[in-house]
């Protein structure tokens, strides 16, 4: 199989995974925008969202046959529960690991370290509570790998299509929220200059919490999508987390559209790279991209746009 033969299949998979990275990357970029901090525990929000959605679907799953409508409804329920768990986790995270430090005006290093602590705590607690084996979605939810249509010979299953479309929809909605709503204006104002924003009547605390929650909702739903495509386990957050961060940096951190572009580009690069280097080195490709970007163009593809998001 030459690269040319595989090209379209790799592209489809790349875009699919990239869309999930983009959804997670938005959480990093938004929080970075308002706090200028890498939220190291974001990957655990993603993981908890995956578990939340998965367990919800399993609880709701009726015995007997599942028709197409039911399967769509179940996926929507999974997304909703995933997003809810993610949002809740992000809220709890902000309360416990960030707010006490912000009240005190702690140095930046303290935030990073406390977020790492939170990440370690959350993922291992999830391992304790949910078991340490990976969990799959009930097999009969989708008729797996049903070919719906093919793009230049690349197979796209119904499940892939759902994952991609849902991710795309979330990205579009977020873009509207950030550029068009009052909350979005608040987020942009805080990202630009928190002190001035607070003088202008923006409730900075509230904006910060809501930014975390929005990031959490997205990551949670993204987690469910990821679990649908692959599986869920308590350590699942780490690698996609780092990759999503890479995507955010690649697109230009603080830049909402940049994060989307970065996610898609990273997904593609990673899949093409995997073809040449082998599956074992998929993760190495992503880290190489991160280091190269930081070397060559640290402000990212679309440039850092703190406060001028979208």
């Amino acid at each position: 199989m030459s690269f040319v033969d595989q090209f379209w299949q790799l592209t489809v998979t790349g875009l699919l995974v990239g869309a999930i990275y983009a959804v997670i990357a938005l959480g990093y970029t938004l929080v970075y925008g308002v706090l200028q901090l890498i939220n190291f525990a974001h990957s655990e929000v993603f993981m908890l969202g995956a578990f939340g959605g998965l367990f919800a679907v399993r609880a709701l799953l009726p015995s007997g046959n599942i028709n197409a409508l039911l399967s769509v409804l179940l996926v929507l329920a999974g997304l909703a529960f995933g997003a809810a768990s993610g949002g809740l986790a992000a809220f709890a995270l902000e309360r416990t690991a960030y707010r006490p430090l912000r009240r005190r005006g702690a140095p930046r290093l303290a935030y990073l370290i406390s977020a790492i602590g939170a990440s370690l705590f959350a993922s291992n607690l999830a391992g304790k509570e949910f078991g340490r084996d990976s969990v799959n979605l009930p097999k009969d939810l989708f008729t797996y790998n049903t070919e719906v249509f093919s793009v230049f010979g690349a197979r796209v299953s119904s499940q892939d299509l759902v994952v991609f479309l849902v991710a795309l929809a979330m990205l579009l909605i977020l873009d509207r929220v950030v550029s068009g709503t009052q909350l979005g204006r608040g987020i942009r104002a805080v990202a630009q200059d928190a002190d001035t924003a607070s003088l202008m009547g923006v409730n900075v605390e509230r904006v910060i919490v809501r930014t975390f929650v929005i990031g959490g909702l997205l990551a949670g739903a993204g987690g469910f999508l990821y679990a649908m495509k692959f599986n869920a386990s308590f350590t699942m957050g780490f690698i996609p987390g780092v990759k999503a961060f890479t995507a955010a940096v690649l697109g230009g951190i603080g830049n909402v559209r940049g994060a989307v572009l970065g996610g898609l580009v990273l997904g593609l690069v990673e899949n093409y790279g995997q073809f040449f280097l082998g599956a074992d080195y998929t993760d190495v490709v992503a880290f190489m991209v991160l280091v190269l970007i930081l070397l060559v163009r640290p402000s990212g593809l679309l440039g850092e746009r703190l406060g001028r998001a979208a």
Binding site: A97, L101, P107, G117, L120, A122
Partner: peptide, 20 residues
């Protein structure tokens, strides 16, 4: 043994909040 890192995570957070 498997839970050790739950405690380490908690220690890190508690230290950062109360005794950085």
């Amino acid at each position: 043994d498997a839970d050790r890192f739950v405690y380490f995570g908690a220690v890190i957070m508690i230290m950062m909040v109360f005794r950085p």
